[in-house]
Amino acid sequence: MEVKLLPVLNRQLVSLDRLRGADQLGEEFVRSLKRTYQTYSGDTNRYALIRELLDLYDILLACRPRMANLILDLQKTLIFLAEKENAGVLDLSNFTDSLLRLKKARMDRAGEAGAEVLSRGQTILLHSHSRTLKFILEHAVGKVELPDVIVAEQDQNKTTRLMISLKRCGYKFKVVSEYSLSHVLEELDFALFGALTLDSHGNLIVGPGSSALMCQLSRARVPVYLAITTNKLSFWEDSFDAAFSELRKKERAGIEYEKQVFSHDLIPLDVCKGIITERGVLTPPQMRMVFDKMQRAFLDREKLIRSLV
């Protein structure tokens, strides 16, 4: 493992994840792999490529937070190489194309499932701005009667991006501060959130502020739906920091203090009424079953790729 590459790649991935979101980062990651296969001037025989990809795989595993969708794609690539005799650069390029098609198909199916959920309500609450959520909002246009939207105002950039998506799609919306939602709870038919990942402890990793909101909504019996595709699930059994934190030195009114800032929130899966995935709208128990099955497959693949070298 190249020690120096790790901090550089980690920094880059965190920055891109923040700027573009996990889904777009996933696409950029796969396209970058394809470009690398095409321009790599080193040894391109199958075993050499397996070694190189395994090195990259280990580096990704060492990154914090771990980017589940990237690791999964790399794992699948390694399995492809392991199973296909005489696989070369061209085969790998074609395989990355198939990964990109799979991503699109996954998003389309999630969009269909999400559109069906949107048709269930007249007034809904939106807080996060994930690409999956944005896709669902866009996908519903022209297919179902669009609900009115209340936007829970949070970070200015995120709220603005959400408003731009809504305006572009023609949704009627109003903005309410996330601190004052108690006044509009009765108007809501349900709330829709995005998530970064679901871990093996049954915790959803969500945007900052989402956890408190979801609890408030749950207590007020407002159904909470969550949109996440299964390629973003984190199957590791060890505890890892999906939400990383940093301690920042600050000063206010002449008082110096330390502020601990967390990148994400945690909330148990059971808070949700339904989870919108490319497999349809799942209840929490169904989601757990899917997770367990996919986790077993993931760990089997992990054993296989470790046996490659």
Partner: peptide, 19 residues
């Protein structure tokens, strides 16, 4: 170009610049 991981790193950067 002869270092796979570093080449991937630079391609990731380029991909982001395209976007």
């Amino acid at each position: 170009n002869s270092s796979f991981s570093w080449l991937f790193m630079s391609n990731l950067m380029l991909e982001d610049m395209y976007c």
